[in-house]
Design a protein around this nucleic acid. Structure first.
Length: 103
DNA sequence: AAACTGACTGTTA
DNA sequence: GTAACAGCCAGTT
């Protein structure tokens, strides 16, 4: 069957391409997906991942270099980042100048 | 079709 | 550097 090319599916494809040990921002993904102002939709796409998805969703943070999630979700993302050797401060800050994914 | 939602961002102070 | 606000737009109701 032909899958329809939804915005979300394109987001997932792009996120899948973020290399191990690197991060990028919601806005950058929106730009790569061809809708530069749709950064909020990127978050929305990551919130509804397919069951059992292996997508590296944790490599996506906001433009201030911080984790946007709160509560337990924040902790899970922080642990996942640190598990790939990324330095994350206690408040969820990552050095984008050093860890940013660039083509 | 209209209203509402929000894992965001740019501007302003 | 942070905080408040407005604009943004795909998906959902």
């Amino acid at each position: 069957m032909m899958e329809q090319d939804t915005f979300r599916q394109r987001i997932w494809q792009i996120v899948a391409a973020i290399p191990y040990g690197k991060v990028t921002t919601y806005g950058e993904i929106a730009r790569l997906a061809g809708s530069p102002r749709a950064s909020r939709q990127v978050g929305g796409a990551l919130r509804h991942l397919p069951e059992g998805s292996k997508l590296p969703w944790h490599r996506v943070i906001n433009r201030m270099g911080k984790i946007s999630l709160t509560g337990e979700s924040f902790n899970r993302q922080r642990q996942a980042l640190m598990a790939e050797g990324i330095e994350v401060s206690a408040d969820g800050k990552v050095d984008l100048n050093y860890y940013r994914w660039e083509l």
